[in-house]
Design a protein around this nucleic acid. Structure first.
Lengths: 119, 119
DNA sequence: AATTAATACCTAAGTAAATTAGGTATTAAT
DNA sequence: ATTAATACCTAATTTACTTAGGTATTAATT
C-alpha cells in the first residue's frame, strides 16, 4: 500500500503533536490507528500521519504527562486509548495558539492575504 | 548576543526556503545578511533566521538552480547578492501555493476559523 | 586610541522529528 | 485460502535545523 502525502514532509514536521493533542481535546479518547484515519478523513488524505511518527509521539506525550493511556481489549486485539490530562489541556491551548500565531505571521510575510486566490 | 525566536523551531522548520525565495521574488536581489534582517523586521523579531541555517540554504538554492549569485565588493567587504532564476520563479510559486494550502488545511483541522480570537 | 558592536561571509558537530522499512498479531473481506 | 484492514511496535536513516564556533571589515562607543 503506497502512502502519498500531499504536502512535503518538511511542512508537516513540527505540527504532529499539536494535531494529536487537538484531536484528543475534541474527542475525549482516541487510539493511535483511529487518529491516523481521522486525520486522513478530515484532510481528504492531504495529511497522512505515518505510524512510525505517531506511536513514538504518543509515547512522548504520555511520558511528558499530556495524555494517559487506557488499554482495552477488542476480542484478542489490544487498543490503547489516549486521554488528555489537565496538563495536556493547557499544552494543547498553548500549542494551537502558537501555531495560529505562526501561520498569521507567515501569511503576512508571504503577503498571502492580498492574493484573492488563497481563500 | 542572544537570539530569542518566538516560535518553537519545529514550526519554522520546512518554511525557510519558501521565505527566502518569496523575498527574492519581491526584491530582485538580496544578500544573506539582508535577508536575516528583513525577516526579523517584517515579523517583529518573531522569526529570526539563524546564519547557520540561512547560508547552507542559499547554497542549496544555488545548486538546484533557483537562484544565481552576484558578488559585489563594498570596500574590502564582500557581498553575495542572490537573484531568482526563471526556474526559481516557478519554484517559489509552487512552494507558496503548497504552504498556503497546508495552512488552510491546518486551520480547518484545528478548527481555528470558528474561533473569533484568532484573527 | 581601544574596545565593542554591527556587518558579512562561512562550516562542522550535534539534535529533533520526521521517514523508511521493517516486525507481530488479529479480524474482516474477497 | 489469500489478501486487506485493523492495531500495535521499533530501529536505522534522513533532513533541516540549532549550536557553536571561525574569519574579516567597518562603524560606534567609551
Amino acid at each position: 500500500m503506497y502512502i502519498c502525502p500531499m504536502y512535503s514532509s518538511e511542512l508537516i514536521k513540527g505540527t504532529l503533536k499539536t494535531i494529536v493533542l487537538n484531536l484528543l481535546k475534541d474527542n475525549e479518547k482516541m487510539y493511535g490507528y483511529e487518529i491516523t484515519q481521522k486525520v486522513k478523513d478530515l484532510t481528504d488524505s492531504k495529511i497522512q500521519i505515518t505510524e512510525g511518527a505517531l506511536y513514538p509521539t504518543l509515547h512522548a506525550l504520555e511520558k511528558q504527562g499530556d495524555v494517559t493511556v487506557e488499554k482495552v481489549y477488542i476480542g484478542k486485539r489490544v487498543r490503547k486509548y489516549y486521554i488528555l490530562t489537565d496538563q495536556g489541556t493547557i499544552t494543547v491551548a498553548d500549542r494551537v495558539n502558537e501555531l495560529s500565531d505562526f501561520m498569521k505571521t507567515m501569511r503576512f510575510l508571504l503577503d498571502l492575504d492580498s492574493n484573492v486566490q488563497n481563500v
